[in-house]
Amino acid sequence: MTAGTGGGAVTAGTAAEGRFAVRRWSRTASVAAAGSVVAVAALAGVPYYAGTSAEQPLVTLFCLVALASLWNLMAGFAGLTSFGQQAYLGAGAYALYAAASMGLDPFAAIPLAAAAAGVLSLPVSFAVLRLSGGHFAVATWVLAEILRLAVTLAPSAGGNTGVSLPGVSGYDALLRQALTYWWALAVAVCSVAGVYALARSRFGLDARAVHSDPVAAASAGVAVGRTRRWAYCLSAFGTGAVGAVLFANTLYTQPGSVFGVQHSVAMMFMVVIGGIGTIEGPILGALVFFALQQALSGYGPWYLVLLGAAGIAITLFAPRGLWGSLAAPRGWSLFPIGHHISGTS
């Protein structure tokens, strides 16, 4: 999990004659990057030494981490709050179904399913990105409803009853679950690392400018529309991959659940509670959400009331989220994305 661009310190030694330096990296970040590599390697070995009982919850957790990071790519970096990412979750799942029905190996077809979701998002982006704020949010939700109704009304896609994933009967159950696990881990790592690389690149700078003030960003030469479109389509691509992995995990999908708005509730909650606009926040948010889900889902509606209330309270009273509230006052940054100016003499 290394930086996409611009590691190390760049000395801005023109007018200031070397008195200031722009830092984009730190010792903490090096330790965090090394730690992440070790952690991912350790997690990759789980099927060998821990077995399926550890795999199942981790697949769920990895998918949550990926979804949170991808939602944050839009909300935290491009100022777009989508309530319709479940459209791409379902698109990925049903694209995988279509590919597997045509005889492709379901695990090999996961990238295809992600690509299908990404391709779908491009024409859609031209319609929904005409809106912003809450209007954008509801418009994306309408897209998810369109897909849900279309699948429900199409007998060839299983209709309302849903479909099972074809082409997995040839796999041994242990191998199938291990493959699903590795795919989930890969999608999570690629989502986090991809968002991190983007955040450190020119795109990240543009996206943060667009987020804080679209008009000023446009006048400073940032292509606002293009930045938003990239964020939207890349997020759709990744979300499609998650949809395909979840389908491969459960082997069954149904339009009523995969296209449900509760997925957006989860994504929003994870990002808001973890810390919007940071790399660490969505990961932390996914862990918190996963723990709450394990502990409280037996309480049914009250659990969701609590989620809603926590989302409101954090947005209003601690808008930096858990990570921001913990890290910002202490200057922590495991995955630095900004430019920090410091005196060198």
Binding site: V305, G308, I312, T315
Partner: peptide, 11 residues
């Protein structure tokens, strides 16, 4: 506003 009213909707 979007996040708060969405949270309210869930509640």
């Amino acid at each position: 506003p979007v996040l708060v009213t969405f949270g309210l909707s869930v509640m």
